[in-house]
Design a protein around this nucleic acid. Structure first.
Lengths: 124, 124
DNA sequence: AAAACATATGATTATTTGTTCATATATTAA
DNA sequence: TTAATATATGAACAAATAATCATATGTTTT
């Protein structure tokens, strides 16, 4: 998504770094940068009210686009745009049957992610 | 976050709904609306390159703010702002020791979420 | 064939959001 | 107390994004 500089000459990290050893060790173990932006983009898909409603609904049942519109009281265009995002990242998959396109969760990770998130929210 | 209308009189769901039964059933089982927006807001925290780097780093080791600045080559202000977001949602916790504030993951769900996300990305 | 229907998509717009800059707070050192 | 250091935070700005509108595509029906 956003460009990210690995090092630069501008005024960054202006304070004295306290634990050079820790920083070095963590830096060594960071997955090479390019993995982290896709990971953020993946989680970003869950970070919107419309999309999370879509995902929650699909975790209950396969649904077609206009079912989702009715459920969410939203316009078809908005729903389709979001479904496109979700599909591009293989979070949902589509199946066409005549004029109707049915969407469902692509794999079981998705359901577990939703559950884990809920578990966090429901903690003391 | 964003306001959300439950029903309205504007032009929404303009197509004929195909499966009223499914829509009704899913609607019944949707967690009451107010749970879903907080859930989206929670996932949103993972949906940014800076924050996910912070979280990944903290999953390796507790770190202070300026350690994180050094690791990410970012300004202290930007890092602190993001830490504030993460802390407000109890994703990270802070511990002060003199002038230095150490951050770490708040609970173990966070680590599992990161792993699940990665697992999804690494699929065929 | 044309009309009707379900879905997809490009462009525009309003809102959200991440970073920066300036400055404030908190703690220790002198 | 004052100076120095580490972190926090408000305001402003630029970039990202979700909804809308208009329209296109693909499928079935007539």
């Amino acid at each position: 998504m956003s460009a990210r500089h690995l090092s630069s000459d501008v005024d960054v990290c202006e304070t004295n770094c306290i634990h050079a050893d820790i920083v070095a060790r963590v830096a060594r173990n960071l997955p090479r940068g390019h993995w982290l932006d896709p990971l953020a983009d993946f989680f970003k898909l869950f970070g919107d009210g419309t999309r999370i409603r879509i995902l929650w609904a699909l975790s209950e049942s396969e649904m077609c686009v206009c079912d989702l519109c009715a459920l969410l009281s939203m316009q078809q265009s908005a729903v389709s745009h979001q479904l496109k995002n979700l599909k591009q990242s293989r979070v949902v998959k589509a199946r066409r049957e005549g004029k109707v396109v049915y969407y469902s969760l692509d794999d079981d990770h998705i359901r577990r992610l939703l559950d884990l998130g809920m578990a966090h929210l429901q903690e003391p």
